[in-house]
Design a protein around this nucleic acid. Structure first.
Lengths: 202, 202
DNA sequence: GGCAAATTTTGCATATCGCGCAAAAATAGC
DNA sequence: GCTATTTTTGCGCGATATGCAAAATTTGCC
């Protein structure tokens, strides 16, 4: 249970991640080997696989869990669900430190690299699962109710779109882009005049 | 552009797919090799990679494009957008032939196998892209409008949930499950009484 | 039918991945 | 400082996946 060992381990993992990202961005993911990453990180090839199951896992930052405090705030919130959820997400993204240029390059790479896409999806899926849980708590419904899951899925989809938009052309902070995309969900399919679709502007 | 060669090619691809799925379901994905698949399909190992970029690609059926006729019907439709879109999807899923047990096993496998998940996601992403295009046409808006993309993303998310639910416990046809999940999107975040969330049943 | 061109299949060599195992090294508790 | 536990490492190995060129097959054409 040594916290020292845990910290050391985390430090090494970060070193490996840094080495992997630098190499991937400079030389291209196809032109680097796990051996090169290990060498740059100052560990043996075999040790690399003690930290990551496969090469691409070292390329994306580890998923960060939602803050417990903010989760409780959401579960007990009294505003419209979507707004309260947006608050939770904004607080979360605000505390993540993301390099936009780097993230753009990595997301672009993930489009053609199966294992990198896997890692990316795992990250989003974890968000989705967490959201499903907290939404179910907020609504006080059990696992048989399909709404939390569907809500979490659509919100996760909106987050994806928001992140993608921010990475591509966003000017401000990532949390602003996510916020506007997520809250746009409310009226997405509410057409003013059935027959001649005139949707509200995003 | 010999159509005979194309048909032969498709036939061989299907043979390989069949061999791969049978082996994966009977022996487990981890216990089979590309060589075993190739042998069962009656081709050389090297030829396998002429048909599929990697082993797992042979496990899922090739994505089917939306029917042109139904797409035009949707683009020119006059009902509520979500209903017309649901019609398009129902027509599409109706014509796909899916073995529920097999699909369940493969989706379960994809949760832990990066490359299989990649193939699955590619399939869903293609749906999402196609939907984005047809929704933009329907709304007569250009690529700068963010709504088609967000709509497509949320509908794709709903399809995922619908398919997942059908695979897990669905009794009827897959298109019915998809239909009810997608149409549930309309009122998902429309709360009757802000403050005390009382959402409509799915 | 038979020949030449184009395409597909195949064998072989090769680089890398990723895991199992056990020895060596580092670290923790006492 | 000694021993137990954990981590790192070296080595071997099977499997994946690619490039290249020869062999086989198919196609168009006469």
């Amino acid at each position: 249970m040594s916290t020292l060992r845990a910290r050391r381990r985390k430090r090494t993992a970060d070193t490996i991640r840094k080495a992997a990202v630098e190499l991937a961005l400079s030389d291209g993911l196809d032109n680097i080997t796990t051996e090169m990453i290990a060498e740059r990180a100052g560990i043996s090839l075999r040790s690399f696989f003690n930290y990551f199951a496969f090469k691409e896992e070292a390329l994306l930052p580890p998923p960060v869990a939602l803050s417990d405090e903010k989760v409780e705030q959401f579960v007990n919130g009294s505003g419209p669900l979507l707004d309260d959820l947006a608050d939770l997400l904004v607080a979360h993204f605000r505390q993540t430190e993301i390099n936009r240029t780097q993230l753009r390059a990595l997301l672009e790479l993930s489009r053609t690299h199966p294992k990198l896409m896997f890692v990316k999806d795992q990250t989003f899926c974890r968000y989705e699962d967490q959201m499903g849980v907290v939404i179910a708590r907020r609504l006080s419904v059990g696992p048989e109710d399909p709404r939390p899951r569907l809500m979490a899925a659509t919100v996760a989809a909106a987050i994806r779109v928001g992140v993608s938009r921010w990475v591509a052309e966003g000017q401000g902070q990532i949390e602003d882009e996510v916020l506007s995309t997520v809250t746009a969900l409310r009226d997405l399919f509410q057409e003013r005049t059935p027959g001649t679709p005139r949707l509200r502007r995003l």
